[in-house]
Design a protein around this nucleic acid. Structure first.
Length: 286
DNA sequence: CTTCTTGTTACTGA
DNA sequence: ATCAGTAACAAGAA
């Protein structure tokens, strides 16, 4: 499940590989993925240069020449896998067994680039989104996302302002809300709240100043460490080279239901909150 | 067979 | 307006 660190890993890898190249072709195997209209995608993209690859929260967007943008949201199981000409000629066989083979039955869109490399969009559950946008449409889209704690300045007083002091919403649901702070998903919210020693059911208005400070600190810390580790591979996630992320070894509560808390040895509980599996330690978190 | 999984949006009802 | 809860989307794992 790609969250901010996974999306950032893909973004930075891709940018290094494709900046300055042009789109030469597209192969669309599942038209419903292209929300801006599959039939016109080729004419829109053809000969456009890739100026940069950008991100806000979990959204990736390619900045192209002529003020055009290509927006990609991976949702739950989307992947962007890059292969250069040599790798394609080798028949999709990769250097290590760990890597994702492409194209495969979940490859729905293939973007072809001017140096004969390709980007394969895979999506097992087909919830992902690819669409083109002009400058206006992009800005409208970006407005749906709150502050990105890695991309933008994110001082404590701004986080306090975002939280407000009247919300009766639980902190887990609040942190998952992309309009408030963008980029956190189920894995990293559980980890942040464990490290901050705050129970996920706590309402925003019940949080003490010291707890808000800890949550703020750990949002930035956890995301930065996870980017350094190139993300968490639990199920489906892989980076642009088809490799897995290394954050799994840092997980304290996520996917550890029934196991011993690494701090106090009590049992890690799992409940459903904000419609999500939520992991926590009753003893460590208050 | 059933249940569970997650990101996001849409909907309902409080 | 705000929020909780749930369904929907789809495929696979257990």
């Amino acid at each position: 499940m790609p969250e901010l660190p996974e999306v950032e890993t893909i973004r930075s890898d891709l940018e290094k590989k494709i900046k300055g190249l042009k789109f030469t072709g597209v192969e669309i195997r599942l038209p419903k993925i292209i929300k801006s209209g599959a039939s016109k995608l080729l004419t829109e993209l053809k000969n456009k240069e890739i100026l940069s690859v950008n991100r806000k929260g979990k959204l990736i967007y390619f900045t192209l020449s002529d003020e055009l943008f290509l927006i990609v949201h991976l949702r739950m199981t989307g992947q962007l896998i890059y292969k250069n000409k040599k790798q394609i000629i080798a028949g999709g066989h990769s250097d290590t067994l760990e890597q994702v083979q492409v194209p495969n039955k979940h490859t729905h869109v293939i973007l072809e680039l001017s140096d004969d490399s390709k980007i394969y969009y895979n999506d097992l559950r087909q919830f992902g989104v690819i669409k083109t946008a002009n400058k206006n449409e992009l800005e409208k889209e970006l407005k749906k996302y709150g502050t990105d704690p890695i991309l933008e300045k994110f001082p404590l007083d701004e986080f306090e302002k975002i939280l407000g002091n009247r919300s009766t919403r639980n902190i887990k649901a609040f942190l998952l809300d992309q309009k408030k702070v963008s980029g956190l998903g189920n894995i990293y919210v559980d980890e942040v709240l464990f490290l901050s020693r705050v129970l996920p059911e706590r309402t925003v208005q019940s949080l003490k100043k010291s707890e808000i400070k800890l949550i703020h600190e750990h949002i930035v810390k956890v995301l930065k460490l996870a980017i350094k580790e190139r993300g968490t591979t639990f199920n489906n996630y892989s980076d642009a080279d088809g490799n897995k992320g290394n954050f799994l070894k840092h997980l304290k509560v996520y996917q550890r239901a029934g196991k011993e808390c690494l701090v106090c040895k009590n049992e890690i509980y799992k409940i459903k909150l904000a419609g999500r599996g939520t992991h926590f330690c009753k003893k460590c978190q208050k």
